[in-house]
Design a protein around this nucleic acid. Sequence first.
DNA 1: GTCTATATGATGATAGAC
DNA 2: GTCTATCATCATATAGAC
Lengths: 198, 198
Amino acid sequence: MYSEVMTTSERLIESTRELLWERGFTGTSPKAILQRAGVGQGSMYHHFAGKSDLALAAIRRTAQTMRATAETALSGEGGAYDRVRAYLLRERDVLRGCPVGRLTMDPDVIADPALRQPVFETLDWLRGRIAGILREGLEQGEFDAELDPDGTAAAVVATVQGGYVLARAAESPAPFDTAVHGVLALLTARTTRTPHGA
Amino acid sequence: MYSEVMTTSERLIESTRELLWERGFTGTSPKAILQRAGVGQGSMYHHFAGKSDLALAAIRRTAQTMRATAETALSGEGGAYDRVRAYLLRERDVLRGCPVGRLTMDPDVIADPALRQPVFETLDWLRGRIAGILREGLEQGEFDAELDPDGTAAAVVATVQGGYVLARAAESPAPFDTAVHGVLALLTARTTRTPHGA
DNA sequence: GTCTATATGATGATAGAC
DNA sequence: GTCTATCATCATATAGAC
């Protein structure tokens, strides 16, 4: 199921990452993890203390991956508007939802400080990163002075996270795309130049 | 635990509503439902076909309640901007999240058309209702002509849903409030008059 | 390191007494 | 209608062979 050169530990982490994305922490059993990884029960308890410990390794890696993906869009070409636009419009497997954000609906994740921390840090970093870009644009005169960088950044991130909710409810990516274009169009009203795609 | 005059069936639905909100469908066991309702196992299987059937009754009622609450804010005093603002800023138990939206992260809910339907219908109605209000405001000249009612409505609903995600990750209502004020401030840029709270 | 028992409690549902 | 068995299966973890 995984590359031949992948270690047992790696296979366990990868299968856990997939299952956490699909079914969350509560909905993922050690048995399901082992079957997908193609290893026996003993291997899991040799490499990890238990389900939570393995989940922590998986969540940390997923958080790191998400951060890298977002950074690619946010550090791309163009001004502040263009980079936020690139983040909002980047390709996504919308119906799968956000592998980090979905964990916030898992009470067992939120109740465990160790599991919650990478989730919080990732979303908090994302908000701060976008706010910083918007502040930059503000200083460059790209937006009018009324733009609130923190509020706008939070709205942008929330629109993406909530867009997943709407899309999964509808079993269609359409509401996600509508929401993301909607928030982008609102941001356009705060730009001083005619932005790309407006 | 519940009112003396509440029927057994009512007690079961209410305890299921609470548990679905707190722990989702996968995370809620019949046993937990029965204990909270204070009834025996036989009663549940007498009144309902099983866990899914009871969850369906609970979800339908929660969906109806959410719709009524939203409608109260959206049909209040003032123009389109004021009513959308009232919806966004209404009091919420932010850290509990949305009892309807959280179900979209439950794979067993999304996989069952009967359970998914009320979730979809509620969020779809909300988007349509807000879009209609914005179109009204557009016709009244309350917004400039560039405002996209459908995109803005989707962004508003998504911001609320995503705001819950950010708040739960942070274990603080602050990011929710920031996001909601952020999207409202963006909407302000599309108004033709000086709106309330701008 | 990895595997296969084995153990204990939870899950989701049924049977049948009252 | 409601209750208490009872049931097969699953969840999570441990023990110990190889």
